[in-house]
Structures are given as structure tokens and as C-alpha cells.
Design a protein around this nucleic acid. Structure first.
Lengths: 219, 219
DNA sequence: CGTTGCATGTAAGGTGTTACATGATTAC
DNA sequence: GTAATCATGTAACACCTTACATGCAACG
């Protein structure tokens, strides 16, 4: 009962639902998709980042415990945040490269972000697409099932390597202690996940062996 | 680089994209949202289930390692599956209760499902909304941060209890060995998650103590 | 000379959610 | 009497993705 429900939207009251805040007081954080808060959060660490920078940052940090939005999505959210007054932007001239638009969090943005942090966290979302296939194992060829799980293991390996890299790179910096904490947590979690995958493979093999007596597989 | 990308859609070729299969040979599984396969998968275990039944089933199994679709969504997917010929339905009369429409997987449905199982699993999706808040800990009050994590722990506790219940209930049944395997896996994973949350709380406390010297919190 | 990185954005549309409507029966 | 369970469905729409367009600079 915990996993599904969502980021409570503003009650649907038929009016075209104006996105601009109805008054100046930012008391409670207005309903925004988590992506917007995540992008704003990235800008709370470093100023003058471009959409392109933010995408790279997201890939190098958010990705390990949340997920990384599409680049085009980041640009869209940035424009929304600017409309709300949560970020300001300016064009940074680069003589060697193309000019870029860099963003900076505003006072109002910091306050809104802090207010959002005080709201109750949405439930964790886990969609384990490999497990879903294992769950339907009675319809699959044991060897192919195994291959799917091993493919998943390879992905975890890669993700873990990346997360470890990120954890090392993040070391030492004062202001980044919380992201560090989370990155280390992500590493530990991926390690445990890999252990579980190992057990899963063993279970799978046992199951395949035990039913190989009257093996009546089509195809 | 693994977490984001998605269920590769059929290449966008401008034509209105007919959903009905273009010919009779079901060779490759047509692109369908995972939810559709999950619903079809539920029907591969038991026949003559109503939309209502399926929702309950999803809540009692899928939920622990995937997620549980909204009831209205299940009804929509069932109609799509029937249009595709993957399920058939009939009205089951009930004299005590309202009549209901029950569904059954067809031959074509089983084959399409098996074909889908042979496709490469989509990457695992994890959106850890509590960790996202911890990640932004420098903007939060330590006590409130702790409360958020404890709230998450309570949710995990509840989910774990439910998963354990499901694991017990599923025991013994021949045809359900794979779902059992997955449910047990989900239980183990939730247990590990709870351990990690404990560690996280300890880390958080350490961090809060170490920085309580020049505590300069706004508000 | 093709690919990769930098850099931004539009358009289309799929996936899934909430809100709500409806209505009967059983349980407290 | 009122809440919960059974049972199905429509409408609106938020969220996010892919495909694609554009263009320059550097690298091999």
C-alpha cells in the first residue's frame, strides 16, 4: 500500500490551473515534479551551471539513487523554474565555444527548496524489470532466464563501478558531505544487490535442476 | 548510463501507428507497456480473473518488486489486450454480487508473453525520494532530516511485513515456484534495505554532531 | 572526413495518475 | 446510518521520453 500513490497534486478544481504562484508568500512549496526540485537541488551546490552541465552532474550523482532526466527535460524544467523566480539566468560568453546560458538559484528558490524538503517524502519507487521476467519463469526457458539475470548483473557491475568512481571523486569537499554520504550509501546498496543477484542465480539453478525430470518445454 | 533509457518503441514513422498487429504471425512481441505484460502475466497463473481481482493480485505480489498499477489502468490494459487477441473475456454471473467480466489468456497471448520474456530486460528503475532529500541535507534541519528517514524506515517495515505475509501465503504451490522465489527475494532485499537505513541514520547523526560547532541554521 | 563533445531546444505522444461517477451488498 | 467491499469505467492531464534539428570545434 505504500509503493504506488504519488506526489499529491493540487486538488483538481476545474479552473485551468494557473502554474504561476497565486501570491508572493512562498510559505508552502508549490506542487512541482520531483525533477524540478532535483534540478534546483543541483543548483544549490554550484552556481552558474548550464543545462548541459546539469545533465552531466545528474548523470554523475543523481543517477545512482534516483535517476537522470533526459537532457531536453532539464532545459524545460529550467525554464519553468525561471518563470517561477526560483532561478535566474544569464548568457555566458565563450570565445572558444558556443555561448551558453547559465543558471543560478535565487533566494526564493532556496526557500522553496527548503520548504519542499520539509514535506513528506514520496514513497520509494522500484521497478525491477528483470525480476518481473523471473517472476514469469514458468513460461521461459531456464537458460534464457539465467541469461537475463546475468545481463542484469553486468549492468549492476557497471553501475557500481561508476558509483565508486563518483564516491572517490566527491571526497574531501566540505559542502558536499551529504551527497558523499548518499553516494557511499548507493555503493553499499549496489554491492548488496550484487550479492542478492548471486543468490538468485543459485536459486534459479536449483529450481531448474529439480524440475528437469519431466522437462516438457515447447519449442 | 544504464538507468535511464527505455522500452524501445517501434521507430516513429509518422503514420498514425496502428496498434493492431499488422499480420497474423506474432513472431516478435509488439511494443507494449510493461504494465500490459504484467497484467497478462498475472493471467498466466490463473484464469477467469476480473479487473478487480487483478488489482488485488498485483497489490499482493507485483507490488513488492515492481509496482502496482492503478485499478483504472488495469481495466484499460485489459481492453487493449483483448483488442490484440491476447485475452478473452466473458461475463460471470453472480447472484449475490454484481456481475463481473472475467478474463483469460489466449494461446496468442501466451505466445506473445513468452516472446516478450525473451527480449532484453529494461534497466531497473529506482527512485529513492527519501535519499534525494538526504542528498540536499545541507539545506535541511538535521532533526527534520532524521524524521524523514525514520518515516521511510516505517514504510519499509510495513512493506516488509506485507511481503513476508505474501511469501508465507504463496508457499507449497507447484505452479507458483517462480513467484515464490521472487517474493522471498523481495523480502531479503527489504531486510537489507532496513539495515542500510539504520546505518544511514547513524551516519546522519555523526554528521550532525560533527558540524554542531558552528551551527548556523537559518529560520 | 567522420565522430565526439559542446549546447539548446521543439514536437509528438506514450504511460500512468487522480478525480470522479455509479450502485449494490455486507458489516459495524 | 455509514463505512467498506465489490466492480467498472471516463475524463483530464501531468510527467517524461524519443526523435529530430541545428551548428561549431576539436580530434583521430
Amino acid at each position: 500500500m505504500a509503493q504506488t500513490q504519488a506526489r499529491d497534486k493540487t486538488p483538481r478544481d476545474k479552473t485551468p490551473r494557473d502554474k504561476t504562484p497565486r501570491d508572493k508568500t512562498p510559505a508552502a512549496a508549490p506542487a512541482l515534479p520531483t525533477t524540478a526540485w532535483a534540478v534546483l537541488g543541483l543548483l544549490s551546490f554550484e552556481r552558474d551551471l548550464s543545462g548541459y552541465d546539469l545533465k552531466k552532474w545528474a548523470d554523475a550523482s543523481l543517477r545512482f539513487f534516483y535517476w537522470s532526466p533526459a537532457a531536453s527535460h532539464i532545459y524545460t524544467e529550467l525554464r519553468r523554474l525561471e518563470r517561477l523566480g526560483y532561478v535566474s539566468s544569464r548568457v555566458a560568453r565563450q570565445d572558444d565555444l558556443r555561448n551558453k546560458r547559465v543558471y543560478r538559484i535565487t533566494r526564493a528558490g532556496s526557500e522553496a527548496l527548503a520548504a519542499w524538503l520539509r514535506t513528506e517524502p514520496e514513497p520509494t519507487i522500484v521497478k525491477h524489470n528483470t525480476l518481473l521476467r523471473v517472476w514469469l519463469g514458468h513460461l521461459a526457458d531456464p537458460a534464457e532466464l539465467r541469461a537475463a539475470v546475468e545481463h542484469h548483473r553486468a549492468e549492476l557491475d557497471e553501475l557500481l563501478a561508476d558509483a565508486r568512481g563518483a564516491a572517490e571523486r566527491a571526497e574531501g569537499d566540505e559542502a558536499w558531505r551529504y551527497p558523499q554520504l548518499v553516494t557511499r550509501w548507493a555503493v553499499r546498496r549496489l554491492e548488496l544487490d550484487l550479492e542478492l543477484v548471486g543468490e538468485l542465480l543459485a536459486d534459479l539453478d536449483r529450481l531448474a535442476r529439480s524440475s528437469s525430470g519431466r522437462r516438457r518445454r515447447s519449442r
